[in-house]
């Protein structure tokens, strides 16, 4: 890198200094609660009450980790959660991408009614569906099973809606030219449409995984064996009636965010700044 390039870059950076400042402040605001989790998970719970609160990490990490494993079998429930979230994400993303594409790019009889009904499942508060859905699962004999945790929500209004909106602006001309070349619909979808929609699909996968990973009330209702618990359900048992194991909870929460962060880091690679026209060009 030459000197003049350096100088230009520096000049640009200075001009952008206010923007960096804004982003820095935003980052700090986003990070503080996270840092507090790190601090809390390395202290004893009794250190977390009283004033002043500790601001530096303590030395109780291993003790807390051992207790977390002992109390809620944390390694086991992490694996449970991963399995459930991965299976769910695979099925749900496929269903959402396909349905979103179908609703955005085709017109078929009942399409608008179907889309409207899908939106209604998103508008109705989950709380009023819990009892009848529970009755259904109980009658099939699915209580305490992972299929009961996963299947009812594989079709996700959120995911379908997100994909529909993403595909709306997809150029029809590309689809048409593929058809003229004789490709069938699924091949067109797979070869032409999907590659262009990568960033949106990446976002969908992140959110689908996150939704299942943090899902609490439905797994709580469905799972009746401690060995089958997912992470949020297991962590919830650490909130007692007259005692709450905050340091264990914070450590568990911290560890539970790691898979999400890793997933985000993997998939955000699909977000390339100022993506060129992509397939539109080629």
């Amino acid at each position: 890198m030459t000197r003049s390039q350096d100088a230009t870059r520096l000049g640009a950076s200075l001009r952008h200094a206010p923007i960096y400042l804004v982003l820095l402040v935003g980052s700090i605001i986003s990070l503080i609660p996270f840092l507090w989790m790190v601090v809390a998970s390395t202290h004893r719970t009794s250190d977390l009450f009283g004033t002043p609160l500790p601001v530096l990490p303590g030395g109780e990490l291993l003790t807390n980790l051992a207790r977390l494993q002992e109390d809620v079998n944390f390694g086991r429930v992490m694996i449970n959660s991963l399995a459930v979230a991965i299976v769910y994400t695979a099925f749900s993303s496929i269903v959402s991408i396909m349905a979103g594409y179908g609703l955005a790019k085709f017109s078929f009889r009942g399409r608008n009614v179907a889309f409207g009904l899908i939106l209604v499942t998103m508008m109705i508060p989950m709380q009023v569906l819990l009892v009848p859905l529970f009755q259904m699962m109980a009658s099939i004999g699915w209580i305490d099973s992972y299929q009961a945790v996963i299947l009812p929500f594989v079709a996700s209004a959120f995911g379908i809606f997100l994909m529909r909106q993403s595909f709306l602006d997809f150029p029809d001309s590309l689809i048409e030219s593929a058809r003229i070349d004789g490709a069938n619909e699924f091949r067109t979808f797979y070869r032409i449409v999907l590659p262009v929609a990568k960033p949106q699909i990446a976002a969908l996968i992140i959110y689908t995984f996150m939704t299942q990973w943090n899902s609490f009330i439905w797994p709580l209702l469905m799972l009746n064996t401690e060995d089958n618990y997912t992470v949020p359900v297991a962590l919830n048992t650490m909130i007692g009636l007259s005692r709450v194991d905050y340091s264990g909870l914070m450590l568990g929460s911290l560890l539970a965010t790691l898979p999400l962060l890793i997933l985000f880091l993997i998939f955000q690679r699909q977000f390339i700044a100022g993506l060129l026209g992509g397939a539109v060009k080629g």
Binding site: L130, L220, N224, V233
Partner: peptide
Amino acid sequence: VDVGYDNAYD
């Protein structure tokens, strides 16, 4: 089975 407190009521 430890179903957790509070949300046990749900």
